[in-house]
Structures are given as structure tokens and as C-alpha cells.
Design a binder for these strands. Sequence first.
DNA 1: GTTACATAGGCAAACGTTTACTTAGTTTTG
DNA 2: CAAAACTAAGTAAACGTTTGCCTATGTAAC
Lengths: 345, 345
Amino acid sequence: MSEKKIATIKDVARLANTSTATVSYVLNEVPSRYVSADLRKRVLDAAAELHYIRSTMASGLKGKKRGIIAALVPQFTNIFFNRFLLGVEQVAHRNNYIISVCNTFDDSVYEKQVLYNAIGHHVDGFILVPTEGSYSNYEIVRNFQVPYVVAERPLHQSHNYDFVAMDNYDAGYTATKHLINCGHRRIGLMTWRTNVTTLQGRPEGYYAALKEAGLEISPNLLYAGDFSEEAGARLTRQMLKDNPDITAIVYDYHVQALGGYKALKECGVRIPEDISVVIVGDPEWEFIADPPLTCIQLPAFQVGQRSAELLFDKILATGQDTPHTPVSETIKGTLLQGKSVKTLL
Amino acid sequence: MSEKKIATIKDVARLANTSTATVSYVLNEVPSRYVSADLRKRVLDAAAELHYIRSTMASGLKGKKRGIIAALVPQFTNIFFNRFLLGVEQVAHRNNYIISVCNTFDDSVYEKQVLYNAIGHHVDGFILVPTEGSYSNYEIVRNFQVPYVVAERPLHQSHNYDFVAMDNYDAGYTATKHLINCGHRRIGLMTWRTNVTTLQGRPEGYYAALKEAGLEISPNLLYAGDFSEEAGARLTRQMLKDNPDITAIVYDYHVQALGGYKALKECGVRIPEDISVVIVGDPEWEFIADPPLTCIQLPAFQVGQRSAELLFDKILATGQDTPHTPVSETIKGTLLQGKSVKTLL
DNA sequence: GTTACATAGGCAAACGTTTACTTAGTTTTG
DNA sequence: CAAAACTAAGTAAACGTTTGCCTATGTAAC
């Protein structure tokens, strides 16, 4: 009930009967500052008694680190970015940082607001998953020399930044290759029509696997549409109609696969007897589906972790001694076998 | 490349050839301050030219609002809290606030760290989803009079706080009632053995529905276990063995339902012909399951929204004019019909 | 018995804003 | 026409920390 105010360093100094300087030195454990055991104890006791908590914003004003990084992701209900953020959070926490999670909704106007807001908060660094138009938004981040790492989607206007992403090419390749290894020859692909360039790695991997196996690469087998269940269902029906001879489908996105799976069942197509299915992604329901889906597990958590690690390397690099050449890393996914692929003789 | 520093109000004042006071007044659009059109323009131009961004931490030092709230949730990979956070974010953004999302991992030690950290950042308010032992952790929040709203799980040591949660009792009741309406008489329940008191509303709702229908309430029909797929599977087998006569099962948690669904299929039980199933929760895969699950859609987004609205009511209530009696709200879920329930004659 | 260093701790100036005061000139009012 | 009221803008004191600089001992070295 008492109108208690949060204790300041002055209150602690007063109670410990010393100066704020000493309190600051004691609490920051500055080794070069001599403080007698007695006084140190008085300070510590006073701080404990008053429940003193350093004001990060006051100390931030003096050029100290703020202990906060911002992560901008396009959709935080997407399980992929969820796991990604979990990876970021783990590393942040290990460094005693908190993380401000911002959803950009894949909208660069919204993103810009969020970015300015965060800059105003003097965050120590950014983990950025770009959206279209991000490059110009990032100008302030570059100008103010706030450390940042770009994740998952590259900026095509520049190559001068650290980048971590999952290996989309490998994911597309592995999914397709698995079907080929199981004897499939006519394999359809359903993908998302997007401008996000890394994601184009998925169809590229598909092509590469086909080519390597000497299979015909037909544009008829490629279906691209919206990032929606509806598109997945509609295009699946279309694909079946256009290509009565296909034996397998690769779904590049779980959302489309969801619609596709339903459409296949509705058409009376049996999985995997009539059509085998592999999806890129591990949406959590891959094994509840009937039959359980063979899928490519994506390294979302690891991408988050690695991005954060790189960011902290930069944040904690005190001087700008080493000019730091930008790194670009990709992390591969893993094939998880379900029961949606039939082995052909 | 230039070692550009972020512009301060002084830089703007210098460029506009005026004082920092005027800049501050102009930029804050203080109506009581007279500024000539000419000077105002000079200030605005200077600010734009220098890409001035107000330092939230410096202005925060002067007792201004920080524009940041913290949301502490136990698990942010849980789809429920995801949607919940989306609701919080929506309201926060509408108020021009950013949100710091912190995962407590249902660990009160971790939670305490996060809480102290956030207090040090002088966040303007908290959305708190408690974990066990939270009450004492919240002491600093109470002491420092930082506004907060508790969501989803109540604190049983006090009643003096704002609280928003989904209606677990209603969810349990509605799920069970639906089965009863479809003619089921022997209905099993699988739930999570937890100390989170609100969650006990789910089994209570189940009991209430049975009682209302004059059905036998047998402890044999109640199976409680871990929050895991494995427990869901194991206990489902046990339930079937113990009660050969049951015709339906209510799963209180989607994670257990996942294991349960698999176990049912492995045992050769047909859904819904042999056993009908309703789950509490809408985990995103409810309709990919085979057959699609009848479920209770949880109002996660709305709970997040409402919590944030209450929080902003408190944050924005300038004076402490009205002493504010604590509110406690619950929001009901909705029945979503799948094909996992058979209507008995 | 100076000089030098190690130990111990206080003073006060930043950091970037906000805002209560102050100063002045220009209208309006009685 | 003097007093009041409005318009316009600058000064400087906070806010809570950090840290360079200073002072004052005690003790070891020359």
C-alpha cells in the first residue's frame, strides 16, 4: 500500500553512508577500484535491504550496454519462427540479455515503425528476418551502427551483412531425392510463389535431384500458388487431373500440404498406395496425419541460436579491432520418415 | 562507413538554431507552448534531416512512459500462448508500445531473473502468466507499483489483481455435454495432473456435465498424467483395458490427445465408430487428423487482447483517482465440429 | 626524510530529455 | 495609458548512473 518508490543508487549510498560512486563501483565489481571489506559489505547490505535494481536506462545513457536485443520476425504464430525465437532466446538469456520480440506481419510499413521504436529504445542489436522492402528500412540500423544479423531471408541489395538461414536447396533436394531413391519417377512439386529468394532454393533442389537422376524436368509437374490451404487443395486437384501418371508429390510448405492432404483424401486417393507424399517442414502434426507424413525437419531452433551467437559476437566485441568480414551460413534440415512414401519395385 | 552517431536533441537544436527546450516542445507537440510557424518548421526540418529519433531511455529517465511492456509466458512454443501474444501485441501496437516477450519455461527461478531484468528496464507494465511460486516473485512488481495483469492462471495467495483467463470449466463442460447430447453415456476423461488451479476447471466441467445428465461419476473414468504424448498414449491404453464399455473420451490437452489418437489407432480402435473423441484445444492440426477432430476452440487471442486492454487502462490512467477494484474475467471457447464423434441412437 | 606506490573513497561532470522559470515583446482591456 | 494577457523562446535543474579526477592515508624504497 505504501507509495514505495524504486530505490536509486543515491538511496543505497545514503543508507550505506557513502557516495554513489562507491556504490556503483561495488555493484559493478570494478577490480581496479579499491574498496574495504567493511564498506563493501555495508553497500551490499544496503542494496539488498532496499531491493535495489540498477536502472538499465540510466546506465544505458552513459553508453553502457542495455542488455536488450530486438528480434523482428514476419509471423510469430508460425511454428518455424517460434522455434527460431526459442533459439535466439536461449542464447540471449545465456548472455543475460532480454529479447524484444516484434512481429512485422510481413509488412514493411509496420516494420519501419517497429524498427524506429526499437532504435529509440537503444537496443544493443537486432536479429532481422526481412520482408520485402526491408533493405531501405534497415538504413537507420546501418547508419547508427547497431549490430545486426539477418536471418532466413537475404537482402539482395547488399552482401555486406551476416546471414544465417536454413538450407532450402538441400531441403528440396533431400525431399525429392528420397522419393527417387524409393523408385519414384514422376514427381510433382507444389510450392509457394514468392519473391523471397532463399525460398526459391526449394524448387531448385527439386530440379537438381531430378536432373541428377536423369529424369525429365517438366514444367507441368510444377505447381506454384499462394501460401494457403486453399491453394494447396486446389492445385493438388489440378495436378492430379493434369498428370494422371504421377506417383509422388513434394509439398514445399506445410500449409499447402494441409490443404493438399485433405484434397487427396477427398479425391479418394490413397496415401501412399496411390500417391506418395513428402513435405518440407515439421509442423508438429506430421505424425498425427494419417498416414504419418515423411518430412524434412527444419533447423529453426539452430538458425535462431546461430544468429544470436553471431550477434553477440558483434555486440560483445568491444573495439572495432577486426573489421569483420561478413559471414553467411546455412544449416541443413533432416529427413524424418513417416509412412507417406511407398517404395516402388 | 562514416562513424555516424545517432543525433540528439542538442544536434537538432544546434541545426535549427534554437534551444533544446523548444525542440522538445515542438517534437512533443505540447499545445500550451507557443512556437512560431517559422521556428517550428526549422525544428521539424532539422529533425528530419538528422533522422532524429527520441531516446526513449533519456526521456524515460524523466519519468515519462517508456513505451514498452513485458509479457511473461511459460512456453512460447505453445500455440495457445502464441495466439495469446498475438492478441497482446495487437493492443500494444495500437498504443504505440513495443512488447518484450519472455519465456519463463514454467520455472520460477528463471522467472525471477527475467522479472528483475525487466524492472531494471523500467517497463511500463506486465502481462503475467504465473508459474508455481510466482506469487513471491511478483513482490517486486507489487512493491514498485508497476501495473500488471495476470492471465490464464490465478494466484491463490491473493485476490487483489486483475485477471483474465479462458473459461476452463465451460470448456470441459461443453466438450462433455456435446458427447452426452450425442447419446454417449460412458465417457472417459484424460487430463493433466497439475497444480494450476484454473486448469482444474476442465475436469470440473466434465463432472458437472455428467452430473447434470444424471450419469454415474466413476473415478475409473478419470485418467490424469503428465503433459506429454507418451502419457496420453499410455493412459489411453489403460483406459481401454479398464473400461471395455466406454464409447467416448474427452482429452483435456492436445498434447495428450496426440498420443492418445495414435494409441487408439494402434489398438485398432476406429474413430468414431468404436470410440468418439473430443479434445479441448485447437492445436492447428485438429482437421488434418483422421478423422478430423471435434474440439473446443480456445479464446487465446481474445484473452491476450483483453489482458492488454486492461493493462493499458491502468498504464494510461494518469492519476490514481479511482482506486480501481480488481476485475476478473473469463472468456468462453467454442465448439468446433469435426468428425470424431458418433451420434448414438 | 623525501619519493613513490598502493589502498581507500569522495566530487562532480557527463549522458539525452523534459519542464518549471524567466525574460521580453506585443496585444488587448478597462 | 497602465495593467493585464497573450505570444515567443531561452536557461537551467532535474532524472539515475558511470567514471575521470582528486585527496588522503599508510607503507615501502631510495
